[in-house]
């Protein structure tokens, strides 16, 4: 290793301050979003309170039942009632949570729209409208669940519902993995920001570099994790460790609204 020993002149005197660009919030905004995601992944703090306080497993059952109702609803008034139910649920969210819910809901609805639109040519405008409403309701309820249940509680809920341990293990690893990648990407963005004095000359190259690096690191991480599990004697058996929250009778109240809706829909048929 040949090494230079004398400092070059430019390193011995300060640089002229660069006139930074005015609009350069890309890194800061994305860092903020990642920090929010990380908070959601790691702790229940920052998660909204559901309309009816209950255990995660019953909340999951209520969600699945509601999604089933949406999928089987064909009439306009049924979708309207389900929409009202979603609206009622949203009222329980605090202002900040509600804003986040609406923003994410609208975003997912917009993403879903191009996938739904081709049905206009296949089945006509009436079917398209119903299809749109149902998809938006599905996304709304899923988004509401995501806003009110922290990921660690989801595991506890799945465990209480006696789902196969392998499935819980996969979700558990996915959560840990997602958390690691988010932490990694957040720290990388901070590092980029520290070295980005002006507007990046090639922002797309920067983004590509970040994602390329993230992909390589995630691959290495997955392989290392697998090796670490094998070295410690992992043989496919997994005993979930999340504490199970036992449901009381009052927790079952969360099932009442979707059940009532199901009864009304059935009677009207």
């Amino acid at each position: 290793m040949t090494k230079k020993t004398e400092l070059p002149t430019w390193l011995q005197q300060p640089d002229r301050p660069v006139q930074p660009a005015k609009h350069h919030n890309f890194l800061v905004k994305n860092s903020r979003r990642l920090a929010q995601l990380l908070q959601q992944l790691t702790s229940p703090a920052g998660i909204g309170q559901p309309l009816l306080k209950t255990t995660p497993q019953l909340q999951l059952v209520a969600l699945l039942f509601t999604l089933l109702l949406i999928l089987t609803s064909q009439l306009g008034w049924q979708l309207w009632l389900l929409g009202l139910y979603l609206l009622l649920n949203c009222l329980s969210l605090a202002g900040r949570q509600l804003r986040r819910f609406l923003r994410n809901w609208l975003l997912t609805c917009c993403v879903a729209l191009p996938l739904i639109l081709p049905s206009l040519w296949v089945s006509g405008p009436n079917v398209l409208l119903r299809f749109c409403l149902r998809t938006w309701l599905l996304l709304g309820f899923t988004q509401y669940y995501q806003r009110t249940v922290a990921l660690p509680y989801l595991l506890s809920g799945l465990q209480a519902l006696h789902l196969p341990n392998v499935l819980i293990l996969i979700i558990d690893i996915a959560c840990v993995y997602l958390k690691q990648l988010t932490t990694y990407l957040l720290a990388s963005l901070e590092a980029v920001e520290l070295r980005t004095i002006a507007v990046p000359k090639h922002p797309y190259r920067l983004i590509a570099g970040l994602f390329g690096s993230l992909y390589l690191k995630s691959q290495t991480y997955a392989l290392t994790l697998n090796e670490a599990m094998e070295v410690r004697g992992f043989n496919g058996r997994y005993q979930p460790t999340a504490p199970i929250l036992h449901s009381r009778w009052s927790d079952y109240l969360v099932l009442l609204p979707p059940l009532l809706l199901a009864v009304v829909f059935f009677l009207e048929k």
Partner: peptide
């Protein structure tokens, strides 16, 4: 303020 933040980053390396 992006200008101020960037000026700080020019001054401090980490």
């Amino acid at each position: 303020q992006p200008q101020q933040r960037q000026a700080l980053h020019q001054k401090i390396g980490f």
